[in-house]
Each structure stands twice: as structure tokens, then as C-alpha cells.
Amino acid sequence: MSSHNMIEIRGLDSHYKGRQVLFNIGFAIPHKKVTVIMGRSGCGKTTLLRHLIGLKPSESGRVFVEGQDMGSFDEKGMANYRRRIGVLFQSGALFNSLTVSQNIAVPLKVHTRLSDETIRIMSLIKLHLVGLADFLDYMPSQLSGGMRKRAGLARALAMDPEILFVDEPSSGLDPITAAGLDDLILELRETLGMTIIVVTHELESAVKIADQMVVMDRGNLLAVGTPDEIRSSQDETVLRFLRREAEEQQVNTESYLSRLLGRQYKAGENSTRRQGGVR
């Protein structure tokens, strides 16, 4: 295995409540680069992210962190891995009962013996970085969605992570703030050499920040490459994705009719009923 890869994924399948949501995913996430995982909503990219941060257990021999099999991590191994990562969740996932600065202090308080004053200065540094230095003592409920997300980023950066995972950085943000966030991601890679994995459906921001792009569709890997390679791709589905064309609906007329007319049908029953529950 190449030492330039931070994380390597091989033949990853994933099931959710009896439905397969990822099919044989395999690619590598290089060191100190920005990797963008793209696809429209429901394509399984967030599920993939959950595998990478160990929230969804995968079979042994599927996800490797610096050559080590994540499936074989025990509790301690997982904790060690997680001390090296920072995760920004889609909604920011701030703790409601704590102020913004207390939110950032949570990992520091648990994992370090730093004094309260040092922790306070660190929170301020991180908040200033995301442009929220004036909101130190606000409660999350007093912030807008975009601010919550930026505060979540400050918290993800609290422990100076080597690897940063970002779920939909620009969703719910105004274009200017979103662009600022993209710049910050680039700066983090530039200055600190952070390995960054971004999950998004925004093509523009993906092309702007990505060193490597991973395009997904309905649980399948469509393409992996630099933004230029992706753009010059000849693959029909990738092209359609780039042109943002609506996918042709593959309507199964027979099942549609039988559903309308109340006759029993079998194929696809489970998948349609459970579509609501994909995460």
C-alpha cells in the first residue's frame, strides 16, 4: 500500500435495513490533499462518510487508515483514530445546552489537561478563524444555520486534526459565506497540510477546492480523478451529472400500473417502502 494514502477503501458494500446503499466502492484518499466526494442527494455519499469516521461499522478488510484495517480497530484503536480527525456534520451538531465556546472546549476538556484560560484562548483563535469571534458566549439556538455550521467547523478544528471530514459545507449557507468556507478549507490544506474529505453536491465548490474528485451515483462509484480529468470524462453518466441533467426516470410501468390497480406486485416493494430511512 502506498504511504501517500491516508485512507484506502476497497470493495466496500453497505446495507441499510436490508437495502444495499453502497456497491463495491474502492478508492484512495491521498495525504495532505482535498478529496471531494460528489453526488446528488441519496447517492450514499453520507453513508460512505459514516464508514470513514467509524460511525457505521464495515466488514473487516474494507477501510484502511494508513494501511491499518479499520474493521480490526478495538475501542482504543478507534479512539486513537478519532483523536486525529475532526468532523463537521451537516447541521453543525452543536450541543444545545452549551455556549459556542463551551462547545469548542468539549474535546479539549476531555482529552487534555489544559487550563481554562488556555482553552478559552484556543476557542477564540478557532472562532476567529471561521469569523465568529464575536459570538463566543452565544447559545447555538441564537445563531443562524450558517453560523452554527461555522461554529461546528471551529469545534472540529479544536484538536488540530490531521484529517478533516466535512459534510455538505455549503448547504444552507449564503454564497459569500460558502465561498469563504471553501477558501478556509484550501488554507487549512495549504498551511497545515491537513488531509480533507468533503462531501458535497455543489459542483462549483467541488471543482474549486478538490485535488481529487470522487463522483458517486446511486451507491456506485462513477469516476475518480482530478477535477480536470472528471470534466473531460467521456462517461455518459458523469457527463450528465456535470450538465446537471435530470436522470431519466426508469419507470417500471408494470409495477406502476399494478400499484395503481391494486394488484399484488413483488419486485421493488421493500426498497420503495424504506427509502425514507437512508442516512
Binding site: 479539549l108 487534555t112 489544559l114 488556555t118 482553552i119 484562548i121 484556543m122 483563535i125 478557532k126 488540530d160
Partner: peptide, 11 residues
Amino acid sequence: LGTAGVAVLVE
């Protein structure tokens, strides 16, 4: 040098 170090320097 980590952020914690920078914070101590500020102090």
C-alpha cells in the same frame, strides 16, 4: 507547534 502552544504564547 499546536494551537494549544500558540494559546500559551498568547498568555
